[in-house]
């Protein structure tokens, strides 16, 4: 067992020294996961909203499916994306394997069901509350959806964050499709996995702490936003 304070000191040293490699890794992590989250929101939110306010035959089957997809094992997603993008796969000609784009694709597949399922729940609860009033006012369907999304925006922000959290902490899929290539596809989680396997626990832990700090910061920011904005409009 190493000195437990050692990783703290090393992490601090790396950060304060403005270590270029470290910041490159952090920046790529954030870029990949934020983009994946944004795309997953663009896809998942409308799907969740539609599932929240419409009734159609087979809806419960779709709900079960989307909910089940929330638990997709990252390595399986990584493997499937790998097969599609590998040189002999159907999309091999795009040359995307071992690029950040491949990592984003894998993460979008992983977190879109999370965004869809959680936003469906948020919006459906709100809709249950508003439905009769909306019917009384004869609110058109499109306005119903936009009103639900607007009034549920703080909860939806939390949903987006859950997606981001899953993406930024995920290692199984990005390591398969990204390959953990230094200066190209190495992100925090894959770097941690590598350093750990090399036995460099101190550096792995240091990166782990940085990852934790990032997660805490992002969540703290959202919480602060929710509190200040919520005090004015939410109640």
């Amino acid at each position: 067992m190493q000195d437990f304070a050692e990783p703290f000191r090393l992490a601090l040293a790396l950060v304060t020294a403005g270590d270029a490699d470290l910041f490159e890794i952090i920046a790529l992590s954030l870029r990949v996961s934020l983009l994946a989250m944004a795309i997953a929101c663009v896809l998942g939110l409308p799907l969740g909203a539609l599932l929240a306010v419409t009734r159609f035959p087979g809806r419960s089957v779709v709900l079960v499916l989307v909910n089940a997809l929330m638990g997709l094992p990252p390595v399986v997603v990584g493997l499937i994306v790998y097969l599609y993008l590998s040189r002999s796969g159907p999309f091999g000609w795009l040359g995307l394997l071992y690029t950040p784009t491949a990592m984003i694709i894998a993460q979008v597949i992983l977190i879109t069901p999370i965004i869809a399922a959680l936003s469906r729940q948020v919006l459906e609860d709100l809709h249950t509350e508003y439905a009769e009033q909306f019917r009384s006012l004869s609110v058109p369907r499109r306005t119903v959806i936009s009103a639900l999304v607007w009034d549920g925006r703080y909860s939806l922000l939390t949903v987006a964050l859950a997606g981001f959290g899953r993406a930024v902490a995920e290692v199984g899929a990005v390591i398969i499709v990204g390959g953990n290539i230094d200066h190209l596809t190495r992100v925090m989680t894959t770097a941690i996995a590598l350093e750990t396997s090399k036995g460099d626990l101190a550096l792995a832990l240091a990166l782990g702490f940085v990852l934790l700090v990032i997660a805490l910061t992002v969540n703290g920011l959202v919480m602060a936003l929710r509190l200040t904005a919520g005090r004015h409009v939410h109640a």
């Binding site: 509350e129 508003y130 009384s136 006012l137 009103a147 409009v233 109640a235």
Partner: peptide
Amino acid sequence: QAMVFQRPVLLRRS
């Protein structure tokens, strides 16, 4: 027609 419900449901807005 319009209705004021016994328990009004107001939007989460101003």
